[in-house]
Design a binder for these strands. Structure first.
Length: 422
RNA sequence: GGAGAGAUGGCCGAGUAGGUCGAAGGCGCUCGCCUGCUAAGCGAGUAUACUGGGAAACCGGUAUCGAGGGUUCGAAUCCCUCUCUCUCCGCCA
């Protein structure tokens, strides 16, 4: 959520900065709603002040018959207050609804651009593997080895699910354990294992609601939603809290499955593991001091990159442009891994800083010192990494001509010493 | 699922025949005094949001005692609904 006062005082600038996302009509109506709300608020509060004052006097009088006039007067005032508050409540809801649908302001360092074509490549790592045969796509490799079974998953549930088997299931587990061990052991993150379904307040705090409900899986009876990313439950760990300056930065890593409807992506990536309704992810989440969030984003991205470096998987890092960053993000780096089966780079991690956007929605604050006023923290998160897509990258980059797949060195301890999936 | 108990400020914990309660007291914390240092002791201060005024320091208003409604001139206190926590029973991985 954006700061109302900032919008009030910098309406044109806010509109201009939002427009760089593409779409220039975001703030229509704000001024009127805000002015009207404050006018009503003043009127209502003045009446309440009067009621409080008179009621106080009434309370001091023993013989109530002497103050019948005041009581009758206040009865009318109370009625008036009730009417005004009803009106005020509706205005508040409208204003709140408007604010909740406004995306974050792009960070000044986010490149300007309209679409993913304007994203900026920041760096590349690793050499693309050379094959003296035609590298296959992971679904062919996986089905050939009997470790990925899409047909039976479709029978069990439907499209966009996968049944992992044998070494495939184990490889997935090896990857996520490897990632968690790396981040907790080397990068200073605390491991957490959060709920995989959350309430609406949590989804609203991180920005999935109210705008993107169609992307989420819902439960019918308790009104809970399946998480599309661990960002949601983990960021909400500190919702409504005031942290100590010395607590910051807080770094969490969490494995969770992620559930996404993928509404509107019919026909996209229909084969294989790239776009599933359920996939595993190891997430990195940080709560930082505002002055440290920029540096922490670089570190977080590097932490995610290191997973790929240790797996010796080539990748590139892209700075997303203003037209391509997500709703809540101020700045985002995507890490894209090389997939030889498809001869392209595919997103495997998205690392973002949200500034105080989520913190304001979630009420996550800190005090600079004992006497300081609470200020909003900055929140960041990134995949470290998407496990399913990492498995895809391993299969495609480590495939051999005979259809087998070498197990990356760092994963062998997690695979019971297995060197090759055959 | 059945029965019962509870939810108050950073923490603990008073407060229910409605008013003087943003809320006793204690702890913690901050500042000052005291002390050779520390401890103890003494004094003062110590919630958040919105909002008005002010350059600011700061001053004022409103709201908040789990959440939402209701009764009343007036609600932490009375009524209703919901949520969560705890205990016992049942069930279950």
């Amino acid at each position: 959520m954006l700061d109302m006062k900032y919008i009030r005082e910098n309406l044109d600038e806010a509109e201009r900065r939002l427009a760089t996302r593409g779409g220039a009509f975001y703030l229509a109506g704000f001024r009127e709603l805000d002015d009207e709300r404050r006018r009503l608020l003043h009127a209502s509060e003045a009446l309440k002040a009067e009621r409080n004052r008179v009621s106080d006097e009434i309370g001091k009088v023993k013989d109530k018959s002497q103050v019948q006039d005041q009581i009758l007067g206040m009865r009318a005032v109370s009625q008036k207050i009730k009417e005004q508050d009803e009106e005020l409540k509706q205005l508040d809801e409208k204003l709140q609804a408007l604010l909740l649908t406004l995306p974050n302001l792009p960070d000044p360092t986010t490149p300007l651009g309209a679409s993913e074509n304007d994203n900026v490549e920041i760096r590349r790592w690793g050499n693309l593997p050379a094959f003296d045969f035609d590298p296959k796509a992971h679904w062919d490799i996986g089905e050939g080895l009997g470790i990925l079974d899409f047909e039976r998953a479709a029978k069990i549930t439907g499209a966009r699910f996968c049944l992992y088997r044998g070494a495939g299931a184990r490889l997935e587990r090896a990857l996520l354990n490897f990632m968690l061990d790396l981040h907790t052991g080397q990068h200073g993150y605390e491991e957490v294992l959060p709920p995989f379904m959350v309430n609406r307040d949590s989804m609203t705090a991180t920005g999935q609601l109210p705008k993107f409900e169609e992307d989420l899986f819902r439960l019918v009876d308790p009104d809970y939603l399946l998480i599309p990313t661990a960002e949601v439950p983990v960021t909400n760990i500190h919702r409504g809290e005031i942290l100590k300056r010395s607590d910051l930065p807080i770094r969490y890593t969490a494995y969770t499955p992620c559930f996404r409807r993928e509404a509107g992506s019919y026909g996209k990536d229909t084969r294989g593991l790239i776009r599933q309704h359920q996939f595993n992810k190891v997430e990195l989440v940080k709560f930082t001091h505002p002055s440290e969030s920029a540096a922490e984003l670089e570190k977080l991205t590097a932490d995610a990159e290191q997973v790929l470096q240790l797996l010796r998987l080539p990748y590139r890092v892209m700075a997303l442009c203003s037209g391509d960053i997500g709703f809540s993000a101020a700045k985002t780096y995507d890490i894209e891994v090389w997939l030889p089966g498809q001869s392209c780079y595919r997103e495997i991690s998205s690392c973002s800083t949200f500034g105080d956007f989520q913190a304001r929605r979630a009420g996550i604050r800190f005090r600079e010192d004992e006497k300081g006023k609470p200020e909003f923290v900055h929140t960041l998160n990134g995949s470290g990494l998407a496990v399913g897509r990492t498995l895809v990258a391993v299969l495609e980059n480590y495939q051999q001509q005979d259809g087998s797949v070498l197990v990356p060195e760092v994963l062998r301890p997690y695979m019971g010493g297995m060197e090759r999936i055959a």
